[in-house]
């Protein structure tokens, strides 16, 4: 069906709408969409980000502990210069993310209430660097910390001044599933572990 006919059918249905089968029809839509608030918390954004990330099985690592945290990592795809990686880690070409132990990428934003990071491809960053390797290491510049995912979703031009990229993701902790007998398992498709470093 072409677009015109498809939409015309909908117009016709709406023009001839029956009254709703409810005793309490919805109120008119509010002028502004109400914000999703979280219980108030006075602590610093980075403290709360770390706590929220830990709650979803990620980890916030102080910069001076990065070396020991990455001791097991042999290979990595790296899309950012923001983190100085230990020398023992071999840097693989970006199209080899599938072979790498870790993907090291930059967060465009990070949400304190939920431990969420904003990831997006660029001239340097692939979509798959943060997704294929078993470990995702994400560098979070202090000045991109915000309160909630709504602060990102309602303010996209701040994070993407040149327009939206073809893909961006809000990622909260490692890949998880509860499909096997309601037991939570990690890493079925994406990273098994997420490690964030605030810069």
């Amino acid at each position: 069906m072409n677009r015109k006919a498809f939409l015309a059918r909908l117009e016709a249905r709406l023009a001839d709408a029956a009254p709703p089968a409810t005793a309490h029809p919805p109120a008119p839509a509010p002028d502004a969409v109400p914000r999703v608030r979280f219980p108030p918390d006075e602590r610093a954004l980075e403290v709360r980000f770390g706590e929220a990330l830990t709650a979803i099985r990620g980890r916030l690592v102080p910069l001076d502990e990065l070396l020991s945290a990455l001791a097991q990592v042999r290979t990595a795809v790296v899309t950012t210069d923001a983190l100085a990686l230990p020398d023992h880690i071999e840097r693989l070409p970006l199209d080899q993310a599938e072979r790498a132990d870790a993907g090291v990428t930059l967060a465009r934003a990070a949400c304190a209430a939920t431990g969420t990071v904003l990831l997006a491809p660029s001239e340097r960053e692939t979509r798959l660097a943060s997704l294929l390797p078993p470990l995702h290491v994400v560098a979070v510049p202090r000045d991109v910390l915000v309160e909630t995912p709504g602060d990102v979703l309602r303010d996209l031009p701040r994070f993407f001044p040149d327009g939206l990229p073809s893909a961006f993701s809000l990622a909260s902790g490692p890949s998880k599933s509860a499909d096997i007998d309601a037991v939570v398992t990690y890493g079925v498709h994406g990273p098994l572990a997420v490690l964030a470093v605030i810069l």
Binding site: L94, T116, P121, R124, T126, P165, S166, L170, S172, G190
Partner: peptide, 18 residues
């Protein structure tokens, strides 16, 4: 908040790597 929220605007751009 859901673990992954993936937001797609068109296919890959020329400047993007994948």
């Amino acid at each position: 908040f859901p673990t992954y929220v993936n937001c797609l605007t068109g296919p890959r751009r020329e400047s993007e790597l994948d």
